[in-house]
Design a protein around this nucleic acid. Structure first.
Length: 673
RNA sequence: GACCGUGUAGCUCAAUCGGUAGAGCAACUGACUUUUAAUCAGUAGGUCGUGGGUUCAAGUCCCACCGCGGUCACCA
C-alpha cells in the first residue's frame, strides 16, 4: 500500500452507520477481518492499572503486553485510544515512531465502539496516563452502531433498560451496580452454605396450584399435557416437601418468582428471592440469619457498615431491634390492640386515626393497616417486627403464647420489608383448615388467595420436623446496598412493555400496496365470468380495533362484518361470487379474486372516522360494535340504541368498494399483523 | 386506573410574545500532533411523537391518541 493510499479517507458517507460499513470494507481491503475469530491477549486493562500503579509519569518500560477491548475514546486521530475491557481502561498510544506505516493505516478504519487488539510496551505518559505504546493494532469486531454521546452517555431511562448492552458500555454506574448484584448473590450463597449448612436446590417454576404467598399469578399452558400451569409466586411448599423427605437439614433456593401485579420502582413482575428452611430452628433463629447475612454481605461485598439509600443512612451492624408489631403500633399511635379483642372495636379504633380498612376487616387486618400506614416507613434502621397477627398470616404457626398472633417476623430497613421469617406450620390439621379458609376467600373473589394443595397436606401428615423458614427479597436488598433508586437499576433486563409495531412511523401504505399487488394464486378456467372482473377495481377492507386483544373476538368480529357485507350491503356494489372447481369437479364457491386487506385502527374513534368517510364516499360498510357481542339481538338493539357519538365502541368495520376511494380513506392505517 | 411532567439531528439539549428550527458531541473533508470530553477550519445531517384544530403564520396555543418518566392507587 502506498503512502497516498494509506492516507486516503476511508469513508465519505455522512450517515454514521453507513460510514462504518464503508470502514468495515476498508478493514477487509487492508487484509484484516472485521469479525475476527479470536485474539491472543495476555493482559487485562484493570490488571495493568493495578500492576503499574507505581510507575512514574514519563517512564518507558520494555514490558510487552497484548490487550483487547472496546474503543471508548479516540483522540488525535487515533494517536491516543482509550481501550476498555470488563476490568477497566487503558490507553493505547499509536505513534509513528514505534508503529509501521501499515499499522498506522489501520487507524483510519477505527471508530468509537470498535473492539480492537493492540500489542506494545508499557509506559506512563508524562501527563500520567498508563499506556501501551503500540507496535501493532488489529480490528477484532467492527461496531456498526454509533455510541451515545460520550460526555452525557445514555440518559434516556427507558432506552437504558431496553438496550442494556449500550447502557453497560457507556455507563460505569450501571456496570458497577449490576456487578455488585452478582457479588451480593454470590455472597448470599456462600453465607447460607458455609454458615448455615444450606444445600442449594431447585424446585419447579411451573406450578399446577398457586401457593406459598398471597399474589396474583401468571398463567401459562403446556401443550402436550394440555394443562395450565402457574408461574410460581413462591417456592415455599416445595422446599418444605424436601425437608419432609429428609433431603437435608437445611435447604435453600435462590429463586425467581413471578407475580402478575403492578410495576413500580420497588416491584418487577419477575423478581428474585432467597428462601431457606432449616430443621430444629424457629423464627428467632431466622432473625439471627437475616442479621448475619446482611452483615456478611455488607462486609464481603462492600466492606461497609453504613449504606445511604433514599436519603436515609442505614447502619447494619450490631444486634437489630426486635419488637412485636402491636407494640410498634402502640408506640406510634397509642392504640393498644392487644387490649382490644373485638374486630368491630378494632375497626372503630382504626377509623378514629383516619386509616382506611374494609368494612369487615378482621382484628389482625386492622393492626396491619395501622402498621403499614403509621409505622413501616419509620423503620429506617434495621428492625425485626415480630408477632404478626394470625389474621394476616395464613401460613404461619400460631404463637406459642398467644393464639391471636403467629411466630412470624419481618425484617425492615429504610422503611422496606426485606425479609420474612417463620416458625413453620407443621400441624396438618391446622394447615388443612387454613387451606379451606383460603379456598373460601378465593371463591369470594380474592384471586390472591392460595389454592388447596392436598398433596402438601399429605406431606405434612408424613411429618414436617420443627422447622424455621426464611425468605429475603434479593432485589430490594440490592437497591438498598447499592444506593439505587429503582428496582430496574439492579435487574439486568427489567420487564418493559413490548414495543408495538404500530409505533413505526408514517403510514403503512407501501405495505398495503404490496398486499394489494398480490393476486390470487390461481384462477380456475372453468368459471364463467371471472375474466370480466377487474381484480384491481374493488377490494375488501377489514379494519380491526387494535385494542381488542382477544383473538377469538377479533376473528368473530371480522367474520361477522364480512358476512354481513357479502350477504347484503355489498350486493348492490357489484360483488360477484365465483364457483371455483378442482380437478375432481368439486365446487369451491369463493370471492377470492377481490383483494382482502386487514388493517388495524388505534381505537374505536379512528374506526368511527374511517366509517364516516366511507359513508360519505359511497363505500359499502358493515359495522361490528361491542354491543353485538352480548345476548340476543333484542338486547343488542337496545344496547346500541342507548349510545351516541363516542360511546359506540367499534371492534371491527368491513368495507367494500372502489379501490382508489378506499386507499384515500384507509391509507393511513397499518396492516393488522 | 388517576394526576403531573415529558417527547426537537445518531446522542445530550436549546429555540423569548406564535414569525427563516439551532448548538455541543458523534459523522464526513482538511489542518495540527504527547492527548485526557484534544484543538482549529469547513461539510452534511430534521416527518419538531402521531393525527386533528385555531391562525396570514404553529416546535410553540387547543383537542385526541401513542410512548416514556414521576407521584398516587393496586400490590409484600
Amino acid at each position: 500500500m502506498t503512502d497516498t493510499q494509506a492516507k486516503q479517507p476511508a469513508a465519505t458517507a455522512t450517515n454514521p452507520f453507513e460510514a462504518r460499513k464503508v470502514k468495515l470494507k476498508g478493514v477487509i481491503a487492508q487484509g484484516g477481518n472485521p469479525y475476527a475469530y479470536t485474539f491472543a491477549r495476555d493482559a487485562r486493562a484493570g490488571d495493568l492499572q493495578a500492576k503499574y500503579a507505581d510507575l512514574a509519569p514519563g517512564t518507558e518500560t520494555q514490558d510487552t503486553v497484548t490487550v483487547a477491548g472496546r474503543i471508548m475514546a479516540f483522540r488525535n486521530d487515533g494517536m491516543f485510544i482509550d481501550l476498555m475491557d470488563p476490568s477497566g481502561k487503558v490507553q493505547v498510544f499509536c505513534h509513528k515512531d514505534t508503529m509501521p506505516e501499515s499499522e498506522l493505516a489501520k487507524l483510519g478504519n477505527f471508530d468509537l465502539g470498535d473492539i480492537i487488539g493492540a500489542k506494545g510496551t508499557i509506559r506512563r505518559t508524562p501527563r500520567g496516563e498508563l499506556s501501551v505504546r503500540a507496535s501493532m493494532v488489529e480490528m477484532l469486531t467492527k461496531s456498526l452502531q454509533p455510541l451515545p454521546e460520550k460526555y452525557h452517555g445514555l440518559t434516556d431511562i427507558e432506552q437504558r433498560y431496553r438496550q442494556r448492552y449500550v447502557d453497560l458500555i457507556v455507563n460505569e454506574e450501571s456496570r458497577e451496580t449490576l456487578r455488585k448484584r452478582s457479588e451480593i448473590v454470590a455472597a448470599i450463597r456462600t453465607y447460607l452454605q458455609n454458615t448455615w449448612g444450606g444445600v442449594e436446590v431447585e424446585t419447579p417454576m411451573l406450578h399446577p396450584l398457586v401457593g406459598g404467598a398471597a399474589a396474583k399469578p401468571f398463567i401459562t399452558h403446556h401443550n402436550t399435557l394440555d394443562s395450565n400451569f402457574y408461574l410460581r409466586i413462591a417456592p415455599e411448599l416445595y422446599l418444605k416437601r424436601l425437608i419432609v423427605g429428609g433431603f437435608a437439614d437445611c435447604v435453600f433456593e435462590i429463586n425467581r418468582n413471578f407475580r402478575n401485579e403492578g410495576i413500580s420502582p420497588r416491584h418487577n413482575p419477575e423478581f428474585t428471592m432467597v428462601e431457606l428452611y432449616k430443621t430444629f430452628t424457629d423464627v428467632s433463629d431466622m432473625m439471627d440469619l437475616t442479621e448475619g447475612l446482611v452483615q456478611y454481605v455488607a462486609k464481603t461485598v462492600f466492606n461497609k457498615d453504613e449504606f445511604v439509600s433514599g436519603g436515609h443512612t442505614v447502619n447494619v451492624t450490631g444486634k437489630w431491634a426486635r419488637k412485636p408489631m402491636c407494640e410498634l403500633v402502640k408506640d406510634a399511635t397509642g392504640i393498644d390492640f392487644m387490649a382490644i379483642t373485638d374486630a368491630g372495636e378494632a375497626r372503630a379504633a382504626v377509623k378514629k386515626i383516619g386509616v382506611h380498612v374494609e368494612p369487615n376487616a378482621k382484628w389482625g387486618e386492622c393492626v396491619a393497616a395501622v402498621f403499614e400506614e403509621k409505622v413501616e416507613e419509620t423503620l429506617v434502621q434495621p428492625t425485626h417486627v415480630t408477632e404478626f397477627p394470625l389474621d394476616i398470616s395464613p401460613l404461619a404457626k400460631p404463637h406459642r403464647n398467644n393464639p391471636r398472633l403467629t411466630e412470624r417476623s419481618e425484617s425492615f430497613m429504610r422503611g422496606w420489608e426485606i425479609a420474612n421469617m417463620f416458625t413453620e406450620l407443621n400441624d396438618p390439621a391446622d394447615q388443612r383448615a387454613r387451606f379451606e379458609e383460603q379456598v373460601k376467600a378465593r371463591e369470594a373473589g380474592n384471586d390472591e388467595a392460595a389454592m388447596y394443595d392436598e398433596d402438601y397436606v399429605t406431606a405434612l401428615e408424613y411429618g414436617l420436623p420443627p422447622t424455621g423458614g426464611w425468605g429475603m427479597g434479593v432485589d430490594r436488598l440490592c437497591i438498598i446496598l447499592t444506593g439505587s433508586a429503582n428496582i430496574r437499576d439492579v435487574i439486568n433486563f427489567p420487564t418493559l412493555k413490548p414495543i408495538k409495531k404500530a409505533e413505526e412511523r408514517g403510514s403503512n401504505y407501501e405495505n398495503a400496496s404490496r398486499s394489494f399487488a398480490a393476486k390470487p394464486a390461481s384462477v380456475p378456467a372453468a368459471s364463467a365470468d371471472w375474466q370480466t372482473l377487474d381484480e384491481t377495481a374493488k377490494r375488501f377492507i377489514i379494519v380491526i380495533n387494535e385494542k381488542e386483544e382477544n383473538m377469538g373476538r377479533v376473528l368473530n368480529a371480522a367474520g361477522h362484518a364480512m358476512a354481513g357485507l357479502a350477504g347484503s350491503a355489498a350486493q348492490g356494489e357489484g360483488l360477484s361470487f365465483i364457483n371455483y372447481e378442482d380437478a375432481d369437479k368439486g365446487v369451491h364457491p369463493s370471492i377470492s379474486h377481490y383483494p382482502v386487506i386487514v388493517l388495524k385502527a388505534k381505537n374505536s374513534n379512528q374506526i368511527a372516522k374511517v366509517r364516516a368517510e366511507a359513508v360519505a364516499g359511497g363505500i359499502a360498510c358493515v359495522d361490528f360494535t361491542d354491543d353485538m357481542t352480548i345476548g340476543k339481538t333484542k338486547e343488542q338493539l337496545e344496547s346500541l340504541a342507548g349510545k351516541s357519538g363516542e360511546a359506540v365502541q367499534y371492534i371491527a368495520l368491513a368495507l367494500f368498494g372502489d379501490t382508489m376511494k378506499l386507499r384515500g380513506i384507509t391509507g393511513k392505517l397499518s396492516l393488522y399483523k
